[in-house]
Design a protein around this nucleic acid. Structure first.
Lengths: 136, 136
DNA sequence: GTACGTGCAAAGGTTTTGCATTACA
DNA sequence: TGTAATGCAAAACCTTTGCACGTAC
């Protein structure tokens, strides 16, 4: 596994399994999703290991913790600044890589030092939308 | 209490205390914050009542449940569409009532029916920013 | 009077922690 | 070999639920 050599963490089999699961994953999985997925290969996997690893990866800047789900934390291996489109029915989350101009007016910003932003778009995905009548 | 007459809920003293605490509140309190605040006047107040009331108020559209805090739900009595400016250090949340043009490109939106959006601005509030050296 | 709200305690779900054991570097 | 990670279980949180009792309407 050359790919993860420079990550600055001990590369245990469990961590490699977690890294592999997250690599390119666009589902914004929860800790439990990750635990279930890697447990298939490592039946002794524990939540402590999952949370430890996620915490280390977050500290190193390899993943982002999302606050889009009120019920649980979800994790995003894509750390490039982007936004999210969330289906309010099935809770699936799509990445939005479009850019938006979001400059706060001076009188609103005040002395606040703004360092970033994140947009949540809400709506119904095509699948969930079909459950409703819809005439144009 | 004429003010809450038309709310469509039984107006118990506990509910009135919660409504009074929330009215004009800009702190985006958690259920626990609300529980602590109203417990001063109503020592027998229970979490069940707080959550029941918050749930009813949310259903009726009088409050919004915020997902800006990974640790717990926070509630906002201001239901007019607005955004938030969050200090990553002290976690305090300010309301942003500015408008932004957020139109998703067709090829990004696809058949998704977008119904709303919410922007989180991140940064350091003036107080927390003072802890860092900062020369212009 | 009756439907609905309250309060208590217990349970459910997610995340954290302590500690002995194991294994990467 | 030494430091750091793993795994298990227990605990800590936040939130929800069941049920007997109480109260607004």
């Amino acid at each position: 596994m050359q790919k993860y050599k420079d990550i600055g963490l001990k590369l245990t089999p469990q961590r490699l399994a977690i890294l592999d699961f997250l690599d390119g994953n666009m589902d914004h999985p929860s800790a439990d999703d990750i635990y279930k997925a890697v447990s298939v290969r490592y039946p002794t996997m524990s939540f402590a290991t999952v949370y430890n690893t996620l915490d280390s990866l977050r500290e190193k800047g390899y993943i982002t913790e999302l606050t889009i789900d009120p019920a649980k934390k979800r994790f995003d291996p894509c750390t490039k600044m982007h936004h999210h489109l969330i289906c309010t029915s099935c809770k699936r989350v799509h990445d939005i890589h479009a850019d938006f101009l979001l400059e706060l007016p001076e009188q609103v910003k005040g002395d606040f030092r703004v360092t970033g932003n994140h947009i949540e778009f809400y709506g119904l995905c095509p699948t969930c939308d079909k459950g409703h009548e819809r005439r144009i």
